[in-house]
């Protein structure tokens, strides 16, 4: 598959990704209201676009309306993500795809928990999120928890544990 075709598929799929399938009947209007970035991309590959079945064109364009309904900040974030995805190497993309495959195989409850967690995570400034994770790690490690010491009874604790083998630690 040529690069152009790959890119086109990428564009089409990212559009489809963020706009679950809707029925629509105003394809041309939707095209006009598509974000400029998408129009540019799709316009550049007009020959391929024209070869798509009309129904698929309609679906993609209709999804544009959904796209426009998103807040401007959200669209910006999603667009940046798409660009990040494009900038990734083939290996990185494969790794991400595999990770996503594993994610899909998780029980629905666990997927929801991760998504909720992700949502909470997104609501905090990135630096604070990172800082909190580091603090949890520091809290664990400084007292020997999670230090991976398989021989807690050995002399000296061989790590961060109490120096006295049967000290009053955990």
């Amino acid at each position: 598959m040529g690069n152009k075709r790959k890119l086109l598929w990428g564009c089409l799929l990212v559009v489809s990704l963020y706009f679950p399938l809707y029925a629509a009947d105003a394809a041309k209007t939707a095209w006009k209201t598509l974000p400029h970035e998408l129009q540019t991309l799709l316009g550049e590959y007009q020959p391929e676009w024209d070869k798509l079945p009309v129904t698929q064109q309609q679906t993609l364009l209709t999804n544009g309306q959904h796209w426009l309904a998103l807040p401007e900040e959200r669209r910006t974030v999603l667009w940046q993500r798409f660009q990040q995805w494009q900038a990734m190497s083939q290996n990185q993309q494969t790794t991400m795809q595999q990770a996503y495959g594993r994610f899909q195989q998780l029980p629905a409850e666990e997927r929801q928990r991760l998504m909720d967690s992700h949502q909470r995570f997104q609501q905090m400034p990135v630096q604070i999120q990172q800082q909190m994770l580091e603090r949890f790690n520091a809290f664990q490690q400084r007292s020997g928890y999670g230090a991976g010491n398989a021989m807690p009874g050995s002399m000296g604790g061989m790590g961060n544990g109490p120096a006295m083998p049967d000290g009053m630690g955990h």
Binding site: G10, L13, V14, S16, L17, Y18, L78, R81, F82, Q84, W85, Q93, M96, Q97, A99, Y100, F103, Q104, L114, M115, S117, H118, F121, Q122, V126, Q129, Q130, L133, F136, G146, G148, N149, A150
Partner: peptide
Amino acid sequence: LRYLMLPAVLLGSGTVVADGWSGN
């Protein structure tokens, strides 16, 4: 199609990083 959801799902990789197995 689902692969393109990856950016949305996995950009929270900071959370995922703290999930997992380790051992000694």
